[in-house]
Amino acid sequence: METGQTITFAAFANQFLVGLSRAMILFIVSSGMSFVLGVLRVPNVAHGSLYMIGAFSAFSISTFLGGGTMGFWVALILSPFVVALVSLIAERALFCHLYEREHLMLLLFTFALMLILGDLVKLTWGAEYRSFMAPLTFRGSIPVLGSSFPKYNLFLLVVGPLVAIGLWLFTNKTKIGKIARAAAVDREMVGAMGINVSWVFAFAFVLGCFLAGLGGALVAPTISIAIGMDHDIIMEAFLIVTIGGLGNMWGAMLGSLIFGLTLSFGVLFLPQFAIAFPYIAVGVILIWRPTGMLKSVW
């Protein structure tokens, strides 16, 4: 009763937008994981670590450039490439030799990679909190539907759909994207067409990790960057991919929206239990549709 009276339309709209912008980060990260899972059929346990590296890289790059607007944009653009490079090295040096082995080996490798990357981050950046500031244009709030809404979150609301469109165009309109989709289902036949599937897998892996890095760089201005951020995101990404449908990009979008919005409405209605809401939603969805809401790619 009491809470019911305090919830205004403005607060509702505000939480809705907060949830949406959180969902955009979740989408960017989990769509990358979903893509790797769809093509290579391996859940990349190290995906969260790469997200963390994306955030720390953004901090370092912008610090190196003395911060500011310029530092922000360069860091935002370069960090995903740093992460992509790390993943490319891991893939070509170690991961690619395991494709002929059982999937369990690949899974174990990504687990080992998570531990290694976690330690490397600790060695490189230490255990302190770091921060990465958005440029002045993105700081502060603007009035939206009667409440004030952080400008940076609006920026996220623009970037999320752009990534979705980009990923859709890539998988549906480019030759390499189509090859990746074919390899997801029948890599042997793709090989028999003269395509070196090992490179297709490398590309898919690196692209997925790039998205983890992008998510990490994008989230960085909204959080304190610290070790441990890999664990939170990986759990969420796994659940999102599971409820969305394995390898399905729109599933990742839907799952992220559910995750982001249930959390922010939880904050609105029952703040002390807010954190439980997304997990309850996941439970309900899995009972309702055990294979995920949308079709798995395989």
């Binding site: 989709r181 090989g191 067409m193 003269g194 070196n196």
Partner: peptide
């Protein structure tokens, strides 16, 4: 490897067809 044989000029049509169904 199969992809190398394909590049050498061998085309393969499997018995179970295996078209890329999603494309």
């Amino acid at each position: 490897k199969p992809y190398q044989l394909a590049r050498l000029g061998i085309g393969y049509v499997p018995d179970d067809r295996r078209v890329f169904a999603d494309l």
